[in-house]
Nucleic acid binder design. Sequence first.
DNA 1: AAAAGTTTTTAGAGTAGCCAAACAATGCCG
DNA 2: CGGCATTGTTTGGCTACTCTAAAAACTTTT
Lengths: 228, 228
Amino acid sequence: MPTSSGYSFTEENYLKAIFFLSRNSEKGAATNDIAKRLATKASSVTDMVRKLSDKGLLTYEKYQGVFLTDQGHAIATNIIRKHRLWEVFLVEKLDFKWDEVHDIAEQLEHIQSPELTARLEAFLEYPKYDPHGDPIPDADGKFPKQVRTQLADFETGDELIVTGVKDSSPEFLQFLEQAHITLGTPLKITAVFPFDKSMQIATQSQEALNLSKQVTTNLFVTLSKTTI
Amino acid sequence: MPTSSGYSFTEENYLKAIFFLSRNSEKGAATNDIAKRLATKASSVTDMVRKLSDKGLLTYEKYQGVFLTDQGHAIATNIIRKHRLWEVFLVEKLDFKWDEVHDIAEQLEHIQSPELTARLEAFLEYPKYDPHGDPIPDADGKFPKQVRTQLADFETGDELIVTGVKDSSPEFLQFLEQAHITLGTPLKITAVFPFDKSMQIATQSQEALNLSKQVTTNLFVTLSKTTI
DNA sequence: AAAAGTTTTTAGAGTAGCCAAACAATGCCG
DNA sequence: CGGCATTGTTTGGCTACTCTAAAAACTTTT
């Protein structure tokens, strides 16, 4: 038990994985999907799921998928909260780039001290979003409301601001970096090509940048009030 | 293995304990002392010591005590470095009090990322001492030189500045807090009582404060240039 | 509705770390 | 120098977490 009071490193990672997997589905998280996400085996997942079920952190019926209980949900959101707060710290205070922070935050998220989390949050001036635009839940586990529309859903002439990324893999983030696109970047759609649904956009630094469909579906944006 | 690259949480704690225990002795660290420090049993220590010896982190002859190798020493000082840097962060940036930081730093010291340590150190502006006055080793494991003289070794009339504490238990730190003594506090010895070797001192906030021998041996001080 | 395919569970086993109790070495003191 | 308390080691066994292999259960296809 690496963590002093509460749940092990491993248990916390299971809860977090199950949170993300069951979030957008009616069916609960599937054993194999959990295994894939945690780079372990389905049999290990069955063991652990039974254990967490015994502890009342999730409900589980054989072959029917896994759902977090309120208690499990609370623990999962707390870990996500810590993860995202630490990411803000790493980027804002220690000048890490947004593609470098995930692995370090994976470690920091397990630090046990509610007092530390609260003070860190205050030190960072109560951020609502992490460096990838993902919402940071409050101490009660509530996420700030956010409408997340993809760049792909807009049309020629629309003026937008980047508010987040759907896929925050280092590869994608490095691509954006190279294109000088980051959170808050204003952009204007100058053309949409029906052939492959790619877009041409203009930013302050670049007149004409071509973005594939894959990129435009991974970028969250909001309509901008001002002109570029 | 909670830590991604390198050594486990537990292994690191053993190395740190052995570092402190063998630092001031010719005989190496004793099995029972290690066990006491880690709140474990002697048999567990023998197991782990053998394992760490196999990995080349310490040398060990049955019944003859334990010594760190250069490699083990490097790992131990790196953990101490991280521990003390995090303590500075907690006190300077998050406004924790000096008696509250130890347990949290015990967790943070195991975070694996040389880049993080380096950036944290820069963010804190390369501190040389932690909030208890203990020296912070550099990235090569070198400790800043420091002469640590006890308040008990000085005499009536001496004007001094508090530079550290020998015992940094919360109990002692809270006692100092209450007496408005902290790192950097200037003080003057106004009397030494031979009967119990207690001292009367004057600080800016208090005219006459009586400190027991136990307190004066636990306070590190240096001669002050200026008058109170 | 049986065959084929997929997913999940069970069974057995390994590693890390821990402990109690039996056993062995050390070294102190008379 | 020899007894004996102290200290350290070995043995056997425990829990937590993980894995492979194989059986069982569900799902889809035919």
